[in-house]
Computed example of a mutant assay.
Amino acid sequence: MDLKEHIRAIPDFPSAGILFYDISPLLAHPGAWQATVDRLATIVEEHKPDVLAGIESRGFLVAAPLALKLNLGFVMVRKQGKLPGATIPYTYDLEYGSDTIEIQADAVEPGQKVFLLDDLLATGGTMNAAARLLRSAGAEVTGAACIIELTFLKGRDHLDMPIRTLLPYDS
């Protein structure tokens, strides 16, 4: 099955000059979504993680069904202020400013193998920050995967872990 047939390109979203790759049609098609989850499961299994971490918010859509399918736990990497209880924050630089992501303080145990998931790899900034956050909590990040990769942004060049993606886009 060609999963690209289920990705919708939306020009000028969220701002002029941006071509947004929308996974909504993929999620709405049971066969395409099942194929996506199955392909990602094969990638994840190679790394033998203890837990999966999804990056807010579409990464949750990817990681949660995979965790269920693979009988693994699921950890949310969220924007600051969105998780209850004690948290571990990580602040990272953006092109114009900074952002902070966090996990709950008890989300991972030292030495636990964590595999990161998101829907899209662009510049790699958030994926890199999520890996650093998890490592700061004592986890071992074994790798990452995304459905879509915007290869022209060279995000994988900024990552220090293995990354696999299903659908590369060159523009």
Rank of each mutant, 00 (worst) to 15 (best):
L94G: 01
G73N: 09
E95A: 07
A145E: 04
S24I: 13
D38T: 01
L94F: 05
D118H: 11
I147E: 09
L167R: 04
L133F: 01
I103A: 05
F13Q: 07
H47N: 03
N71S: 14
A105W: 05
S24N: 14
F13N: 06
F60W: 12
T123S: 08
K79S: 10
D12T: 03
L52F: 11
F74T: 01
A122D: 00
D22F: 10
G124N: 02
M127E: 00
Q112H: 08
A130G: 05
E109M: 15
A86T: 14
E102S: 06
R156D: 12
A16L: 07
V114W: 07
L159A: 03
P14Y: 06
V62A: 09
I88F: 05
L27I: 15
D12I: 06
L72T: 05
I147Y: 07
S171P: 04
D12V: 07
L83K: 06
T42I: 00
A107S: 14
D170R: 12
D157N: 12
P11I: 01
G111S: 09
A105H: 11
Y21D: 03
K113T: 03
D170L: 11
P11D: 12
L117N: 11
G17P: 01
L27W: 09
T126C: 09
P162Y: 02
V77C: 08
Y96F: 03
G138V: 06
F13S: 08
G54L: 10
L68D: 07
S136I: 02
A137Q: 07
T100F: 12
L3P: 09
Y92G: 03
D118I: 08
T126V: 01
L68W: 08
R132L: 12
G138A: 06
T126S: 14
I10W: 08
M76C: 13
L83C: 10
L61D: 10
D93K: 14
R78D: 06
P14E: 02
L70I: 05
P25T: 06
L159C: 00
G59W: 08
Y90E: 02
D160Y: 00
P168K: 12
I7V: 14
I7C: 10
L167E: 08
D157Q: 13
H29A: 13
D170I: 01
K113V: 04
L116I: 15
L40S: 04
F115D: 04
G59L: 13
R164T: 10
C146Q: 10
T87Q: 09
A130P: 02
Y92I: 02
P168T: 14
L150H: 04
